[in-house]
């Protein structure tokens, strides 16, 4: 019974997600089996791809995006400071550094027995675009050696 309710709610949230993406005429590819959508957004300076999925079992909406460049893994301490600072600056989501040099932005929403509106997806996507656009240039310049961690923190 509980599982049926969880599934029903998860499917409803997946439908809201797809409806929102279609209404906004965003470029996306959905996967009905995984209840996920991969979406591409082009801003003035960046092309951002992100994945949004519904986890029925844990009642979670998960948004993940990889920043469009890799960093030098030799500089992991420097980039850990930068991603920690970026995570502290943004109100929603976190930036994490992976061992292979990629930087991931992620944000999750636990809806536990709640009924969320399409606006939650709009909010999550807008926050992701804003945060990635605002901070990825800084992270990239830092990696290239064109800026220092102190410049990054001041901004």
């Amino acid at each position: 019974m509980e599982n049926t309710l969880k599934t029903k709610k998860g499917l409803r949230h997946y439908r809201y997600l797809c409806d929102y993406l279609a209404e906004e005429k965003l470029v996306y590819e959905k996967n009905d089996k995984r209840l996920s959508a991969n979406l591409a957004v082009a801003t003035e300076c960046l092309s951002i791809t992100m994945s949004i999925s519904i986890d029925i079992e844990h009642q979670l909406i998960c948004l993940r995006a990889l920043l469009p460049f890799k960093i030098d893994t030799e500089k992991s301490e420097l980039h850990a400071l930068a991603t920690a600072t970026a995570t502290n600056i943004v109100t929603e989501g976190s930036f994490t550094l992976n061992a292979n040099g990629t930087i991931c932005y992620k944000n999750t929403f636990s809806y536990f027995d709640s009924l969320v509106s399409k606006k939650v997806f709009a909010y999550m996507i807008k926050c992701a675009i804003m945060n990635i656009e605002e901070l990825s240039e800084n992270l990239f310049l830092l990696d290239m050696g064109y800026s220092r961690i102190s410049d990054f923190i001041k901004e």
């Binding site: 992991s76 850990a80 400071l81 991603t83 920690a84 600072t85 995570t87 994490t96």
Partner: peptide, 21 residues
């Protein structure tokens, strides 16, 4: 900073915020 990064990588909900100033 590296430890906070490792923790945040694993967290499913919420985040640890390190204010280095």
């Amino acid at each position: 900073a590296l430890i906070i990064n490792a923790i945040n990588t694993r967290l499913v909900e919420g985040k640890l915020c390190y204010d280095i100033i």
